[in-house]
């Protein structure tokens, strides 16, 4: 991807000013607007599956932002985990709970104005806070901070313990999800194709 990025703009921060953004900054901003727009549509649309698909756009755009920030490995993991698995699971969930085509009556709750107020308030506060704090900070993107080799090195030289703890977490989530989605007494269901000896009725609940 490096050449594609190089085509987008010079890597050296030429001039540090709001007024003359570098090519990279322009790309970042454009993708950022796309991400934000997709996110807004995703939380406001009343078509359930569309919301999930807009979320795909937002998360994919974020992967591009990670690439622009030189965190290459994180970007691919984002695509692999979010776009390849999380969204698919979400769509799965939506479809299994009968997502209708068209607008869904149960998309939004009654407290949208309150939610809007809270959202705007938090946006205003946080933006002020962040802009104030980082008004004179620039990122130097010259070093490759997130190639796979670097990632492997820091993960296994500094973050072994959380990494191991995560494996426990993942296993627990997997087992938990499996056991919750198994139907009650689902251990001995008749397999398709085999003769049933007796009508299997779930025992009284």
């Amino acid at each position: 991807m490096s050449t594609l990025l190089a085509a987008a703009g010079p890597l050296e921060p030429a001039a540090r000013s709001y007024l003359s953004p570098t090519g990279q900054e322009v790309v970042f901003l454009l993708v950022g607007v796309l991400v934000l727009g997709a996110a807004v549509v995703s939380v406001t649309t009343r078509r359930l599956v569309h919301a999930a698909l807009w979320l795909v756009v937002a998360l994919g755009g974020l992967a591009v932002e990670f690439l622009l920030l030189t965190a290459e490995f994180v970007a691919w993991v984002q695509v692999l985990v979010y776009l390849g698995s999380v969204i698919v699971l979400v769509l799965f969930g939506l479809m299994l709970t009968r997502a209708p085509i068209g607008r869904s009556p149960d998309a939004d709750s009654g407290n949208r104005p309150a939610a809007l107020a809270v959202g705007l308030a938090s946006a205003a506060t946080l933006v002020t806070l962040v802009v104030d704090a980082f008004r004179s900070s620039w990122i130097d993107l010259s070093g490759a901070a997130g190639t796979t080799r670097v990632t492997g090195e820091y993960l296994f030289s500094h973050w072994v313990l959380p990494f191991e703890a995560l494996s426990v977490l993942l296993l627990a989530a997997l087992i938990g999800a499996i056991v919750l989605s198994r139907t009650q007494g689902g251990r001995a269901r008749p397999r398709a194709g085999k003769l049933r000896t007796a009508p299997t009725k779930p025992k009284e609940r």
């Binding site: 991807m1 698909l53 290459e72 691919w76 993991v77 692999l80 390849g84 698995s85």
Partner: peptide, 21 residues
């Protein structure tokens, strides 16, 4: 691509969205 295998598997995983859609 530096993380070739990752890229390949990550991007191929996106294809499933097409079938779901």
């Amino acid at each position: 691509v530096d993380a070739g295998i990752f890229f390949v598997l990550a991007v191929m995983g996106v294809g499933v969205l097409g079938a779901l859609m």
